[in-house]
Amino acid sequence: MEHRIERIGPGGWERMREVRLAQLLDTPMAFMETYETALGHGEDEWRARVERVSAAGSVGFAAVAPDGRWVGTMISFTPVPDEALLVGVWVDPAYRGRGLGVTDGLLDAVLDWAREEAGAHRLLLRVHEDNPRATAFYRRRGFALTGESEPYELDPTGLLLEMALPLD
């Protein structure tokens, strides 16, 4: 399926809202908010989210279908010098699969940003322990479990597992 990878910038708040609601319906455990909470956000919140991923030290990428819909996202930011954190990862089920290249394309864009613009030496992420498909993708791309974990905010009986990829 055709798609292009583009940087999320100002003006994308409506598509940000649309894709976030789709994310929460498809994979609620992968995100730190509920569908109901996200549905209640006003335009100002969605505009603020787009501004945050466009700010210095942050980046957002969207996989865009020929009709302009966002069919995948990856967001990264630098919480501390030398490290980037990957968040907001999602690909529409119709665009999943290694052969389609959407997830790999998004990650390649984040990796380029982390190395070249952010100057990060390591890319971190947290994946829910009950998300083996995501964990397998990250392992295939060279990420390894660090041994660190934290309770999942929306259900503390579940864990978020930390994975890291050296960028040097």
Results as ranks from 00 to 15, higher is better:
P151C: 07
E6T: 07
L124R: 14
L39Y: 00
H3M: 08
T73F: 00
G60L: 13
E6P: 04
R52C: 03
F137R: 03
A134I: 09
F143R: 03
N131T: 09
E117V: 00
R17L: 03
R122H: 03
H41Q: 15
D92R: 13
G97A: 11
G119P: 08
D92M: 13
G119M: 06
V64H: 09
Y138W: 10
E153R: 14
W90V: 08
A109L: 11
I5G: 09
A65H: 08
L39P: 01
A63N: 05
P132F: 02
Y152H: 12
A134M: 06
D130I: 01
V50P: 13
P81T: 02
V53G: 04
G40I: 01
G11N: 05
M29L: 15
A164M: 02
G147D: 11
G158Y: 15
E116D: 15
M163R: 11
S149M: 04
R15D: 06
E153V: 12
A30F: 12
T34Y: 15
V87N: 05
R139D: 12
D155F: 07
W90G: 03
I5K: 10
T27Q: 08
L86H: 00
A94L: 15
L107K: 05
T27H: 07
E14P: 04
D67F: 01
R133L: 14
L123R: 02
P79S: 07
G147R: 09
S149I: 01
A118M: 07
L21D: 07
A114T: 01
E33T: 14
R141P: 10
Y138Q: 09
R17I: 03
R140G: 13
V71H: 04
G142W: 00
A63Y: 08
Y152P: 05
L125I: 04
G40E: 02
A144H: 03
R15Q: 12
A144W: 05
V80M: 12
L161R: 14
H41Y: 15
D104A: 15
V102H: 07
P156I: 05
W90E: 10
V19M: 09
V71E: 02
T73H: 01
E116P: 05
D155H: 10
L106V: 06
P156W: 05
T78L: 06
L124D: 07
D26C: 04
E2N: 14
G101E: 09
R52N: 05
A134R: 01
A109F: 10
D108K: 02
G147V: 10
E33D: 14
E2A: 14
R96I: 09
